[in-house]
Computed example of a mutant assay.
Amino acid sequence: MLLENKKVAVIGGGPVGLTFARLLQQVNVNVKVYEWDKDEFARIKGGTLDIHNDYGQIALDKAGLLAEYHKRSRPTGERSANINAEILMDEFPDKEHLYDRPEIDRNDLRKMLLENLQPDTVIWNSKLVSLEQQDEKFVLHFENGKTEIADLVVGANGGMSNVRKLITDTIPQYTGTTIIQGEVLNPNETCPNFKKLCGEGNFAVIGEQKFFFSQNKAKGALNYYVSF
């Protein structure tokens, strides 16, 4: 096997990095995930993810986690309105398509993935600041002063990743769009009319080069995005 007796370093403990680590561990590859969060409880906010059956669910199936994902996720309806709050579409997946792309809270997905990794796979409080190639290995330098060596480095920490510099000199460009994210913890009490408009699933409004999108989380909170 190509990675036999090799060490793999995954930079970023998000859904992709953790899923990739799980896949490698299933074939006994030595892998560590380096995540800059202090611990698994550092970020408790965020919206929901819909993982599609013809894309992300394929990876979860190979990782032996598809049944667990279906257990923790939920089929979700889609609603849209115009800028006058008039409902244009309100649909819920039929019985045959309930789990084509169910939603799961980001924290629930991370918890599921962490529970199915070997102990101490994720090295927390490890923000990568630079890396360099020495012979056939890579030396990774972290903000906490630690240094690690790996045979293969996988960047799974977003478009601004420091790993990116070794692959391309193309710099991410600002597109001119700004997104503001927020969360209402008790929408039924604090904004019942707004919650009624958003419904129990996903809700979207597009108009005048602006975009509003909301998601209902597992415990009733309302996550929203405003883009302009």
Rank of each mutant, 00 (worst) to 15 (best):
A42Q: 02
K71G: 01
H70A: 01
Q57W: 00
T76W: 11
D39Q: 02
Y69S: 03
F41I: 02
F41P: 00
A67K: 10
L65K: 01
D37N: 14
Y34M: 14
H70T: 05
G46E: 04
K38W: 02
L49T: 02
R43P: 00
I51D: 01
S73P: 00
D61N: 15
P75A: 12
I51A: 00
W36V: 07
D39W: 06
R72E: 02
A42W: 03
D54T: 11
A67M: 07
K45S: 04
G47D: 02
T76E: 09
L65C: 03
S73F: 04
A59P: 01
Y55T: 14
L66V: 09
D50W: 11
L66I: 15
G46L: 05
E40K: 12
D39K: 03
Y34P: 01
Y34K: 14
G46N: 10
F41H: 07
I58N: 15
G56F: 01
A59D: 09
I44M: 11
R43I: 14
W36A: 06
R43T: 06
K71P: 00
S73N: 05
K45E: 11
S73T: 01
H52P: 08
I44L: 09
Q57F: 02
I58R: 13
G64L: 13
I58T: 14
L49K: 00
T76D: 11
L66E: 03
H70Q: 11
I44C: 06
R43F: 11
D50K: 05
I51T: 02
H70F: 13
G56M: 05
I51C: 01
T48Y: 05
